[in-house]
């Protein structure tokens, strides 16, 4: 069973005891695509480093595939693939050399596991003799993923693989993950982009070292406690000020083209429309996004 367990994990890097990770418990089932969703400084990288046996937690227990991260670290290291947030391949080795190097480290060859990386590798194969340092961002990302997969790991840890990557390349990358998942690999991936949450089967929303919620994206959205509305009218900044001042409105946040609002006890669509004194207002009830849920959890703790 290649699942991931974290039980009451704590970790602090400072003497004052400020916690990078605070009493985190999580369970990721075998074969799942699991997302850690949260901003910089939430503790995502710390959790990855504990699970990949690179640092020790201050307290709590963690296991990968039933193996303890402290006692059985050697077994875990052989069975996992890890793509850190920072590009960590050898810049002065070529694409092919990097791949061969990582294969050799794990006592295997590129040919042995070619089937697993084929789809991704084919895209960078034309640049086989180019030094990794000279690759574009998107190609580096693909090479790093190939290197993390070369020993056919049971579990894949990907720390912010899409940060700083444009929207098109991000979509492409999530397509690759879906493919890998279909081959039975358990995947834990982190991202600061809330819109990527819906591409995971299960997610943890994490903020300042605390897990605020763990569930499927649909279930997290279903747990949003209020009715949510989208509102739009010419002069959106001015509208936001008016909404924030209105006693009818409990929360108002800008969400791209619209503002998302919830009503206070005495508020309703009709009353708000009347009180706004605007002729051109579009307002409709909407399904919350993960970002709405994140904001709600952040501001109601």
């Amino acid at each position: 069973m290649w699942d991931i367990f974290l039980q009451s994990i704590n970790k602090s890097y400072t003497e004052s005891g400020e916690k990078a990770v605070n009493d985190v418990s999580l369970h990721v089932e075998e074969g799942k695509l699991f997302g850690l969703i949260g901003p910089d400084g939430a503790g995502k990288t710390t959790l990855f480093r504990i699970l990949t046996t690179l640092i020790l937690a201050d307290s709590g227990t963690a296991s990968v595939g039933g193996y303890d991260v402290v006692k059985d670290y050697k077994v875990i290291r052989k069975s996992i693939g890890y793509m850190p947030g920072r590009f960590s391949l050898y810049q002065d080795l070529t694409v092919k050399e990097n791949l061969r190097f990582f294969a050799t480290l794990f006592n295997t060859t590129i040919q042995d596991n070619y089937g697993l990386i084929e789809d991704i590798y084919k895209q960078i194969e034309p640049f086989n003799d180019r030094k990794a340092g000279k690759l574009s961002g998107g190609m580096k990302q693909k090479l790093a993923l190939c290197c993390a997969l070369i020993h056919s790991p049971k579990v894949l840890f990907l720390d912010e693989p899409t940060t700083g990557v444009d929207a098109v390349s991000r979509k492409e990358f999530w397509g690759m993950l879906k493919n890998l998942k279909s081959k039975g690999i358990t995947i834990m991936v982190s991202t600061p982009y809330m819109d990527e949450a819906s591409l995971c089967e299960e997610i943890a929303l994490i903020q300042e070292g605390n897990i605020m919620s763990v569930n499927t994206p649909d279930e997290i959205i279903a747990q949003y406690p209020d009715m949510l509305y989208a509102i739009k009218s010419p002069g959106m900044n001015q509208l936001l000020q008016e909404l924030r001042k209105s006693e009818l409105v409990a929360t108002a946040n800008s969400f791209g083209e619209y503002h998302h609002i919830t009503f206070s006890k005495q508020g309703s669509m009709e009353l708000l429309l009347k009180s706004l004194h605007r002729s051109d207002v579009e307002m409709k009830p909407i399904r919350p996004t993960i970002e709405d849920c994140f904001i709600h959890l952040m501001t109601h703790e």
Binding site: G38, P39, D40, A42, P192, F294, T299
Partner: peptide
């Protein structure tokens, strides 16, 4: 705003 939480 890269990597910043949604409220901030």
């Amino acid at each position: 705003t890269g990597g910043v939480d949604p409220v901030t």
